[in-house]
Write a protein that binds this DNA or RNA. Structure first.
Lengths: 204, 204, 204, 204
DNA sequence: GATGAATGAGCTTTCATTCAT
DNA sequence: TATGAATGAAAGCTCATTCAT
């Protein structure tokens, strides 16, 4: 039912999605839908909440698997974001594209999830700074701002890709995007990081 | 009239914006609105089109003023984007935030404007590559992807700022954002670039 | 619901009939109306369609009851038309009066029903010609034109009567009208035809 | 201006005709239209009124030219009706087709014009009765009813023709229609009446 | 006289929500 | 629990009419 709702919200946007269509997509009746979710708002809130849960679980897993190195952990978090949302395009659209148009509450929920990831990345950046993994910085790095910029860049690329405005497959895009991000924070890119970025197999 | 429409679209999103409210905001009647714009769609198309025109004009001016250096020109383009949209918050929301929820045509228009800026930045990146301004690259830089990433990052930061999720003023944020972007492409950041980024006075 | 719609369409005409009023007349809500008929056009189409069905059924019955004589059958068809529409004044107005003002599709539907009756009468006229029931013709009779003229005359009288511009009751009018029609085609009017025109009781 | 209005009313019906379109068809502005006619109703009233005037003038002329014979005079009246309306198809549609859909006042005006012609024909029928021109009547003829039936039949044929549902040209239809009408009242159709019906040339 | 931008009441249509079954 | 017909508050759009120029 949440899947059907996510699909319809992703296809139409919140305002244009009709409860009728969602019910049809979920193979139930409108009454059945309303038995589980009192309002349309509660429905999208549930969709967003579940997307957040899925993301959280997978990112936590991937970061644990990435070990202790903060750069590897941040990389794991971001690449998991990309992997997960590219595998669930409708979640990607619900999370990435539904900024206005939906209700204030839904927007708030999406923002909260994004802020959560910004905080995770910012923490790793702080660790990296403390460990001296970031070099050659001409000016002090603001971990919060940088984290938000990273997440924003990833989100923007996902958005462009979900809208079909980037032709290359995401698997080809992320490595290059990763280099841009790491370079932007002054991380030394070493050859082995290039060839063995992180264990992708553990994230599906 | 377009200003009023932009304000209301920015406040409510396309689907939730009512023609009544726009008419009231424009100090006219609904009939008057419809005399000039045959449909709600045509209205938001005009709003988006005007935003694009304003941006285009100012960015072109700023780039010319920035001289021949491709890095300075790209910097000028992006900082003008930031300056302009931060000065017209409603345009920022219409352009940055209205992805789904509005009609396919409106989305297409916004995407076209974004693609335009991606192309501009990509051109400068190509020039910079040709001139050897980008150093220390462990892997060849894809100018198109990088340009899209840059614009995406800027857009994401503007979005977060427009939504009130970044507390710092944009004037403080952009210099740091700029360092991130330039570093990500391997531009040598020199001290004087830090302290005198570019002539902001020529862009207002 | 169709009855209510027919009443309102008859009272106001298509363009002036409001869905609100129809809903009120049908003791439902506007939404309920739209649940069953997607548009106002579909609603009048259904009204017209049902009127056609009712007419068709009754006319067929009456013609069968009239036996084999083509003159009696044509007479039965026309008098049933008169009886039915005079008993359902709102159908009469919808069918007879809604020429322009409604949509092209509705007009087409009404025209098709009229053409159907013209064809029925024309067939009986052809039979009458073949059987020699029509005499004293100074010129060959065109069955199609005659049939259309007959139906047109009946329709015009019904229209005038429905609009209140003929004071006499229809029961008094039809026998005289019938004599005019039959005479116009050269049917020999015999006394017993006058006093026992046809079995009216079988048509209610 | 009245011509333009008649054309548009004929094409769209009263309710669907827009003052904008009429103004455009008349090569004026809406303001100009409203300078001459205070309301849409007044405009169609003027159109109908003028149609009535034109008809009246031409019918009077034709009847005078037809001489003293009541049958010839009635024939002249009806054939002039047909000639005139077939030459001005838009007037035909305004007069013949606009029953409901327009305002009560407009309908009243059309009805009055029709009643006028019914009265004219009825008078001639009364004269014909007095003169013994109508023979072989099995029952007494009601001149008013017969006149209304005649006018109704003519109107119905014009309507069908104006709507394109009769393919034959009106010039071919009227002679046959005339025979039907005259026969219906028991007028002896003589050869010379067939070949030299009346002086058509005086009616254009 | 003529113009056409502006008005606003009114219309059709939509759709989240309800509730008897 | 589930259904889907019914509800009614909006919302987009139309168009006769007005009036400053």
């Amino acid at each position: 039912m949440l899947d059907a709702a996510a699909t319809v919200f992703a296809r139409r946007g919140y305002a244009n999605a009709q409860m009728d269509e969602i019910a049809a997509a979920a193979d139930t009746s409108k009454g059945g839908l309303y038995f589980h979710f009192p309002t349309k708002e509660a429905l999208i809130a549930a969709v967003i909440g579940r997307a957040g849960d899925i993301l959280r679980r997978r990112v936590t897993l991937a970061m644990t698997a990435a070990g202790a190195d903060p750069v590897a952990r941040a990389d794991a978090a971001l690449s998991t974001l990309v992997d997960t949302l590219s595998a669930h395009r409708s979640l990607a659209r619900v999370l990435a594209a539904e900024t206005l148009g939906s209700s204030a509450a839904a927007r708030e929920r999406v923002a909260t999830i994004e802020d959560e990831y910004v905080a995770i990345i910012a923490d790793e950046l702080r660790n990296a700074l403390a460990l001296g993994r970031l070099t050659r910085l001409e000016a002090p790095l603001d971990p919060d701002l940088t984290a938000r910029a990273w997440v924003g860049m990833v989100r923007a690329m996902l958005s462009a890709w979900a809208a079909g405005r980037v032709s290359a497959p995401l698997d080809d895009i992320y490595p290059e995007l990763r280099r841009l991000l790491l370079r932007s924070a002054g991380v030394q890119l070493e050859p082995q990081l290039e060839t063995q970025p992180h264990d992708r197999s553990s994230k599906e």
